[in-house]
């Protein structure tokens, strides 16, 4: 029943909140109008969202976002130091990371996280969605960097995004 009315509950909540934030008011009128839009838009666009998203551990996801927020600040200080320092000593590198996450949303969140955190940018995903190409601004030990990424970001994502 609830699945019929709300095919994508997370999308509905996100749309509702963004409508309220866009109008910058929490009046009852905007609440109702936003809710109507948030219910109808997922109906009309549901053919674009074929893959079901279900979150296993919301708490792990929240903790993950906290870790990422903190890492973004740290990453920026590190990158600022690297940029303002001598650029001749930088050791850039390309490397592949083998993905354990299979869920599409999980992969895209992982790629976004990698781009926002210490000195790495995700560049390309192989067609079979198994390996992710990463460019690092300054890397001393590639294996260590890969292990860090796997331990810190991929493990919680793998717990959250599993097949349902």
């Amino acid at each position: 029943m609830i699945n019929k009315i709300l095919p994508h509950p997370i999308l509905t909540v996100v749309l509702w909140i963004s409508w309220l934030l866009l109008n910058n008011s929490f009046d009852p009128g905007h609440m109702v109008l936003g809710l109507i839009l948030a219910i109808f838009i997922p109906w009309f666009t549901s053919s674009f969202w074929q893959e079901k998203v279900c979150l296993k551990n919301p708490l792990t996801l929240l903790k993950f976002f906290g870790v990422v927020m903190w890492d973004i600040v740290i990453a920026n200080i590190t990158v600022a130091k690297l940029i303002l320092g001598k650029n001749d000593k930088l050791q850039p590198a390309f490397f592949y990371i083998d993905l354990d996450v299979e869920h599409r949303l999980g992969i895209s969140i992982l790629a976004n996280t990698i781009s926002l955190t210490p000195g790495t940018v995700s560049c390309d995903l192989t067609a079979d969605r198994k390996r992710l190409l990463i460019h690092a601004l300054h890397v001393e030990d590639i294996d260590q960097t890969i292990a860090d990424i796997k331990q810190r970001y991929e493990k919680p994502l793998k717990e959250v995004f599993t097949k349902c």
Partner: peptide
């Protein structure tokens, strides 16, 4: 400003990408 400095002074495109995306 740091992001733009990175964009200006880093030596190749892939490295320049780091400045604007993060800083």
């Amino acid at each position: 400003l740091v992001g733009s400095i990175g964009l200006y002074k880093l030596p190749d495109f892939y490295m320049r990408l780091h400045g604007p995306t993060k800083a």
